[in-house]
Amino acid sequence: MRGQLWRWCDRLFAGSRESRLAWWAGLLAFLVITGSVLWLLTRLLPEGVDPTWERIVEEGRFPVCTDPSWPPFEAVDDETGRLEGFDMDLARRLGPRLAPGVQTRLVTVGFDSLYDALLAGRCDAILSALPYEAMRTEDVSYSVAYFNAGLVLVSRQGMQGIQTLEDLDGRLVGVEWGFVPEGDRRQQTFIQTLSLRRYDLAAGALSALEAGEVDAVLVDRISALSYLRGSTGLQIVGEPLADLNYVIPVRPDSFRLLKEIDRVLLEMREDGTLEELQAGWFQD
């Protein structure tokens, strides 16, 4: 068999010019036909059964677990008792966009039991401002990110010269007490060299920035967005310096559901839905 292969290979390089061209053309045709057949097979063959997805489509119900104790992502409205927040709006919009006729049903679960509730089948996904956790990928599958809550740099509007982390060198930077530098090792090392002033809470650091006590602040993006909602004098500079991505966990065998959730989230990213939700809960 190996000898035969060698002989075929020889014919690609030996013999008359016409003969070599004929062999090269044959090889190309073989590769094109084989590739086309494989591509067709992947499109036509069924991709297996995801029982979770089958049930969601059949029953028209998409149960989603949440712990409503984390405003503005999820909370209980004191007056109406209704679950409200960024995640709750996202969950309600997610169901109908997964498949026609599907409605989201929210299931409230304590924070510590969210993953157990998912694995025990009380719901098919979790939407509760959960960050991606590499340690859990043996037990659950994660969607693409729908919100980045990572570390951001905040400065006063109109303040010149603060565009990047490196611009903080020689300046006074406010952080929350207990702040531990995030990001890659280079960033962490750099942050540790800065002049840091610690405040009990992130809001205190942002307030100090507004009052001119510090030149910039490093805080998580949720604290920054929440504070900026009531302040016009501050701005978030650039993209998060370190990522803390909120994602939607599903059971590992819910591969079709995960694929559909990813599709809808990417569509929402494109059509501005995620931006609209963020504006609604952080800026209005």
């Binding site: 712990d67 104790s69 924070f111 401002a129 929350e176 007490w177 207990g178 610690r198 009990d200 809470l201």
Partner: peptide, 13 residues
């Protein structure tokens, strides 16, 4: 940061 019986790091200290 999420547990309902938790406090901030500065309060804890």
């Amino acid at each position: 940061p999420r547990w309902t019986k938790a406090v901030s790091p500065s309060q804890r200290a």
